[in-house]
Design a protein around this nucleic acid. Sequence first.
DNA 1: GTGAAAGCGCTAACAG
DNA 2: CTGTTAGCGCTTTCAC
Lengths: 345, 345
Amino acid sequence: MATMKDVARAAGVSVYTVSATLSGSAPVSPELKARVRQAVKALGYERNSVASGLRQGTSSLIGLVVSDVTNPFFTELVDRIQIEARQHGYSVLLGISGHDVAREAELLRLMRSQQAAGAILGPAGGAADYRAADLAAGRMKVVAIDNAFPALGVDAIGLDNRKAAALAVSHLLDLGHRRIAMVGGVPRQHVARERLAGYRDTLRRRGVAFVPALIEPGNFRLEDGYAACKKLLRNDPRPSALFVANNLMLIGVMRALGDLGLRVPQDISVCSIDDFPWASAFQPALTVVQQPIADMAGAAFRALLGRLGGEAGPPARQLLSPHLVVRQSCAAPPSRLSARRQVCS
Amino acid sequence: MATMKDVARAAGVSVYTVSATLSGSAPVSPELKARVRQAVKALGYERNSVASGLRQGTSSLIGLVVSDVTNPFFTELVDRIQIEARQHGYSVLLGISGHDVAREAELLRLMRSQQAAGAILGPAGGAADYRAADLAAGRMKVVAIDNAFPALGVDAIGLDNRKAAALAVSHLLDLGHRRIAMVGGVPRQHVARERLAGYRDTLRRRGVAFVPALIEPGNFRLEDGYAACKKLLRNDPRPSALFVANNLMLIGVMRALGDLGLRVPQDISVCSIDDFPWASAFQPALTVVQQPIADMAGAAFRALLGRLGGEAGPPARQLLSPHLVVRQSCAAPPSRLSARRQVCS
DNA sequence: GTGAAAGCGCTAACAG
DNA sequence: CTGTTAGCGCTTTCAC
């Protein structure tokens, strides 16, 4: 591998001149510039970012830690963050925590040791799992995304989860549903608690009784949605609509409904949080509350860049607004009669 | 940030002793070891991998370049590679080429400049886009995955694409289909050509005529599947089955079929390459040819580790076997009569 | 076993 | 404008 010294010798200039032309950190005469360029090409020289990073005390790496890439929300988030990073000259070091807080900490440590300038973290845990000082300590700036709560002690970008739940539940109420079941998340997760709160608040505001039996917690995974759905449908009278707290559980719910031979939306309406490419290819196309993932990625990156640029001040929390996408999985609740008729219309 | 020197001073030993205890590269007396450990903890020392990498001329980073993370095949691939990397003490630097060969080269260059030990590349282009020497040159070892052809000049892990197509088409033929249309890929891509070849060969072997009008190329994206499907269905007589060359186009096909009011599998059968979590939640659950993604990731990583370990020899190519997963989207072709009857059975 | 010291490739302060 | 040079933090050869 050719080094800068080799280039300097080949071009008949000093290493300083080479460094200056390549990084543009200082003006160099056009003639020398050309000679340097030519030598670079002739030798196939490529700058060693590691050496550069060591010298400068930082790198152009940023870390990204998510709990599960195969969750379409995170898949898109990774994609968007990647785009942002590229636009700002950063490369991304990807870590997958598998919902494991210890592993998450380990990944962050690793990224710090790689001298990553910053990291964007989708925290897997709840408030109890973090000490405020930990994330904020060290030179590496971290910004939280998605599961964003104050106890993290760093800038956080999240969804307005209460509003998201309210959007879904209101839509269902507007269609005439009164028995709306919820496939929720585990209470220790901030996101899950907020979505449940949004559900309860909306029912209360609209004067509909809250029925504990119509809530089933899950762990945001496919199997949980499947099991929760089956359990909820054993209620008598059966709920006429299902509000599902995330995309993975929605898949489980749809499978369960398929197994049970229930038609959507004729027999039961379904509305969920999280949009994904398949939602509109389903029969019926799924009505969902969409998270503004690109905006979240943008906001997170902006926050990170701000901190990298030396911005001080206490951790800021930013909640972005969800958006209801009405497709075909929600309809008016079936009356006994119409349910019969619809079997073969 | 504490440095090794600080630790050495705090522990009252030399930096050599610190380095040796931390990396285990040389024996150190238990007593000194303990003192070092304690100093490390007291100072909150974390090793600077950049400095270490500079000195050693390599890093524990490996690059991973894919064309599109949101394609479920690559999503799972990223997940699996990540797991492999972690198990072997590597971190992954993720790059997304967006199907752009120039960008891909740029990403590889970047990774090389970060002194990545190796890279796993899902090539976006065809044979014409690469010169054999390019990928193999440089200290960074690269291994190709998925779109793997000899012209790359590096070890390559791929699917046996002809067999994959044969599996799908045979299944359809066995059910009695004779007019099987194919939503294929662009001919310049190796994968697409192989899948088409598998389709043709299978028809020929089974004595079914190849009808050019029943082939529609796409670019492996959702929109392409949608458009291709609509176009193919304008054939008269209509094809009784659709063989779709990848998952993203399958989504498009399912949307198009939904728009057209065609029922699967009563009106038309559908079989595709690539499995994904939603395939079994669809109504009907989708019959697909599954790629052994975990095995592919494992094989790619093993090949890379081998090269990193100094293995010489010409580039090796390894084709893994696909697997047919029969679900509910394929059935016997409808006769005119039964098609009528099925409308309300 | 342990310590001192050279140097990985680059940048930037300093001197011309 | 250009060249010389001192390190960034770590590993490792060489001497003890």
